[in-house]
Amino acid sequence: MKQPKKTTPDAAEAAGDRGDVTRQKLLNAAIDVFGHYGFDGTTTRALASAAGVNLQAIPYYFGGKEGLYLAAADHLATMISSHVSGRRQQVQARLAEIQSEGRAVTRDEARELLTSLLHTLAEVMVSEKSRAWARFLIREQMEPTEAFARVYESVMRPMIEAIRRLVGILLDDEPTSEHVRLRAISLIGSVMVFRVANAAALRQLEWSEIGPREFNAICALITEIVHALDRRGQK
């Protein structure tokens, strides 16, 4: 009787690599396609076609369209986190270091840390790669699902809370107060507008694109806004 062909370690590894490539193709395509057409308007055939993979790969790797949608949200959160979490962790480490010194964070230190966080966020928002991310997230902002909850908890909430803490220092108020929450959200909005309202921003500013000069102008504005966040200057 003919013996079944054994799978060698090299063959198994190659199959695993192909599977990883297929999954990655589907995740990247899903963010773009779901962002354009929404969950209900997207077919598995369109997803497979955009990814350049077999239609059966979706149920095989993700269990179906919903599984791929949630996996795409997790993938999106991971990509955003790879760009912003490093800076956020640096800020949190610096705050912890100051606390270990037994002193309060000064306004100057808070301004510097807050400015660095917002500059990093701006860098992500004006990058071309964030275009597809924004389409996906805007749909989730309008009609939140579990996908939004995943992105919010893993990326958005930690960033907002770090910003709230620094804003609270500048306003001499508790980070949990409604006033600080409002100011933190408005700060983030002043950065995100260059992605979610990109066409209007470019038209109003008479910019053809956001290149190095334009990005420097945005960062200068962020610095100006942060410096205006001082309770003493409001009295």
Rank of each mutant, 00 (worst) to 15 (best):
H179Q: 13
V180Y: 05
V180D: 04
V180A: 07
V180Q: 06
R181N: 03
L182G: 05
L182A: 08
L182C: 05
R183W: 01
A184Y: 07
A184C: 06
A184K: 03
I185W: 07
I185P: 01
I185S: 00
I185K: 06
I185V: 12
I185Q: 06
S186V: 01
S186H: 08
S186F: 02
S186R: 11
L187A: 05
L187D: 02
L187M: 08
I188A: 12
I188V: 14
I188Y: 11
I188F: 10
I188R: 02
I188L: 13
G189C: 11
G189Y: 02
S190L: 11
S190Y: 03
S190T: 12
V191S: 13
V191R: 08
M192G: 15
M192W: 02
M192Q: 11
V193K: 02
V193R: 03
V193Q: 09
V193W: 03
F194K: 01
R195C: 13
R195H: 11
R195T: 07
R195K: 14
R195V: 03
R195F: 05
R195G: 02
V196Q: 15
V196Y: 15
V196E: 11
V196A: 10
A197W: 01
A197D: 08
A197M: 03
A197E: 06
A197Y: 09
N198S: 13
N198A: 15
N198C: 06
N198F: 01
A199M: 03
A199K: 05
A200T: 12
A200V: 10
A201M: 15
A201P: 04
A201G: 09
L202M: 10
L202D: 07
L202Q: 06
R203N: 05
R203W: 05
R203Y: 02
Q204P: 01
Q204D: 12
Q204C: 01
Q204T: 04
Q204F: 13
L205V: 07
L205S: 07
L205H: 13
L205P: 06
L205T: 06
E206Y: 14
E206A: 02
W207Y: 01
W207E: 03
W207F: 14
W207P: 10
W207V: 00
W207K: 10
S208F: 15
S208C: 13
S208A: 15
S208G: 15
E209Q: 12
E209G: 04
E209V: 01
E209N: 11
E209K: 14
E209R: 15
E209W: 04
